[in-house]
Design a protein around this nucleic acid. Structure first.
Length: 216
DNA sequence: GACCAGGCACATC
DNA sequence: GATGTGCATGGT
């Protein structure tokens, strides 16, 4: 299906031309990135940025520090991101398995196959496919594709893929039709979010969207 | 005041 | 496999 390959490439070229490189993920360390991936579930990034900045200011932005914090204490500090009780539990679940890897032992993960690592992440209660792929792609620097609500909406509106389409089908669609390039995957997802935020909201629809000519 | 935001687990049909 | 619900704050 070289037709799809060309179409996906064209989509990337249009986005990178319109917006330029996004330089994702906004975060300085793998741990900060992984934490942000959990906190931003169904939540505006501005709320997450505030919480992370506050944690950093208090010297709590370390896996051990958060692990030792009682869950109720953590929940209180997570208030601005919403679902704070839920997310405090999810952060603890994640740290119970992965905390030791952030203590200067991240290279130990090199021996793990990406798909194996992905399954391990998905075993953590509170980490679903999007969060797992975000952590893999941006914190662990593994080539995978992140599919989010914007991806579904954008591709749906422009009839780029069949409908309905599962998360896994959409992820494979991108992986199958793009060169296996880490920074390409990192930029592509970031650009889809940028397009989604600026032009592909539920309302208003599509005003001034760089993909306007693609609308069917 | 309604609607939305870079989801996920769980129940039910 | 598809669909519905609870989780919750902050911005438009």
């Amino acid at each position: 299906m070289t037709h799809h390959r060309r179409r996906v490439r064209q989509l990337f070229e249009t986005l990178i031309t319109a917006f330029g490189p996004q330089g994702w993920w906004p975060g300085e360390t793998p741990f900060e990135i992984a934490l942000g991936a959990i906190l931003t579930q169904n939540t505006a990034w501005t709320n997450v940025a505030r919480v992370i900045a506050d944690l950093k200011a208090e010297g709590l932005l370390h896996p051990r520090a958060l692990q030792e914090l009682p869950q109720a204490e953590l929940a209180r500090r997570l208030r601005p991101v919403g679902y704070y009780n839920l997310k405090a539990a999810r952060v603890h679940n994640f740290l119970a398995v992965f905390a030791r890897f952030f203590d200067g032992a991240l290279h130990q993960l090199d021996a793990w196959d990406t798909e194996v690592l992905r399954r391990r992440l998905l075993e953590v209660k509170g980490i679903g496919p999007e969060t797992a792929d975000s952590i893999l792609l941006y914190a662990f620097q593994r080539p995978t594709f992140v599919v989010d609500a914007y991806t579904f909406r954008i591709l749906g509106r422009h009839a780029l893929v069949w409908d309905p389409c599962s998360y896994e089908e959409l992820r494979q669609f991108f992986l199958d039709h793009l060169p296996q390039d880490l920074s390409l995957f990192q930029e592509f997802h970031a650009l889809l979010v940028r397009l989604g935020k600026d032009y592909c909201r539920p309302t208003p629809r599509c005003q001034g969207c760089p993909l306007e000519s693609w609308l069917t």
